[in-house]
Amino acid sequence: MKVLVCISHVPDTTSKINFTNNNTEFDKSGITFIINPYDEFGLTRAIWLQEKQGAHITVINVGTSETEPTLRKALAIGANDAIRIDAEPTDAWFVASQIAAQAKEGGYDLIIGGRESIDYNGSQVPGMVAAMLGVPFVNACVGLEVDGGKATVIREIDGGKEKSIISLPAVIAGQKGLVEESDLRIPNMRGIMQARTKPLKVVAPVESERKTKAVLFEKPASKASVKLVDPDNIEELVRLLHEEAKVI
């Protein structure tokens, strides 16, 4: 079984988000980058497939050389090899086209991405990859079992969960539930040493259009400081919610 895990290189959850160059660019200075948390749930689930079912795990990222430490971390966690498509990942269509091209070439049984990235929150790439390949797509996947050419998947739906059986190859977009946080692996020294010599292939991008362009960034308006209400006069809170906030 060959599994391709898509890795987004994103600012750490606790990062302060700032913009630069007249608010036309995200300010990367002082930012620590990590494996996108949603992708890490998928990577960990893939490692289980490696350990229990002998899967071969390739991780892939579309990014410039600055994303390599993130790919090396995925290798240290246990992926067998890595592919970096050498391009700026500014548009979902472009990124999906790159991953789909590699997926076609590599003949993967399963492609795992995250429900969304925590930077641009697009929720687009895995679904587009699936459509470009013409294979099943499962979003918000919280359960995955692979048996031969089929997978049993559980996904979140609006107001519940749905369990279904799909045939492989397929693309899933994962989240917590595929594995739990306590299952996530911190690379050990042996893993980190091994990761240095595992193959990391750098590939030129295929020709693809970019269908969107980020033209301006904006920070949320800073909140006015909190209005405190006396707990002994809770009717005042109801009045404020009705008359001032107009939400009830």
């Binding site: 913009f19 269908k211 362009k213 980020a214 033209v215 904006e218």
Partner: peptide, 8 residues
């Protein structure tokens, strides 16, 4: 944050 996207 917010981003303004221009479609191509």
């Amino acid at each position: 944050g917010f981003v303004y996207y221009e479609s191509q």
